[in-house]
Design a protein around this nucleic acid. Sequence first.
DNA 1: GTTTGACCTGGAGCGCGCTCCAGCATTCAG
DNA 2: CTGAATGCTGGAGCGCGCTCCAGGTCAAAC
Lengths: 130, 130
Amino acid sequence: MTETYSPSQTVEMSGFSLDTLRYYEKIGLIEPVRRAAGGHRRYSDDDLGWLDMLRCLRGTGMPIARMQSFAELARAGDETVAQRLALLEEHDAAVEAEMERLIEQRDKIREKIVYYRSYLDREPVVCEAR
Amino acid sequence: MTETYSPSQTVEMSGFSLDTLRYYEKIGLIEPVRRAAGGHRRYSDDDLGWLDMLRCLRGTGMPIARMQSFAELARAGDETVAQRLALLEEHDAAVEAEMERLIEQRDKIREKIVYYRSYLDREPVVCEAR
DNA sequence: GTTTGACCTGGAGCGCGCTCCAGCATTCAG
DNA sequence: CTGAATGCTGGAGCGCGCTCCAGGTCAAAC
């Protein structure tokens, strides 16, 4: 049988806030979620899987607008696999570039750290009065 | 002799926009820049060096507010070196953590890419009509 | 039956980090 | 001397990605 999850469970499992889950649904990042009798959402395992994908894309800096394109392609069915692949490959390259930039700048900061350390070694502690 | 640079040269060399340079000065991220006779800014090599530092901090995701603390410590002189060191070390750790997150999520995206590729291999091309 | 808490909707609001603009002054090439 | 380019200030505006709120409905415990 297929599991379903309440909004609060989904918050817990997905790491998105309740508001963000509703927002993502509203803007079409996730398909309209199944509802229980009274109108309350019931997320499926599929929904959870999709949310996990979204988390990876957002977490690696993909803008919402691009994620919407991706979601639209996914909704369109199997003929769009090639386009989705292209989109992900392009994003992967962007992430790679971003990481290289990050490493470069981190290294510069580390140089600065080393410099500060050496400074403190030279001038160990300044006692306030002689 | 000490070189100085016009705003437009500084834009070129620092990678910050003119507006951002003025904004950073206004909020105290950089000390008041020397002015030529007519009031136009003349950036020094020191300014350029500091801007490079700022670029590294911003580029690795340090929030403006934290950079302001750092700038304030720097202005306060040599007694704050230890505090600046601590701030940079903490930031370095944050960057490291961020990069690990990035790698994890990138790997998941790559798995998806592999999956899409294998899908396309199985079902090579769908000719529109039979 | 009532209370408590989870959930609903539509829309307004917000924090961040710039970016743009009007209106004016300065500089420089020709 | 004139015109174009560059620069100045103060303050408004903006794009992104949520986040919050009011005013209700629904569900489950007592």
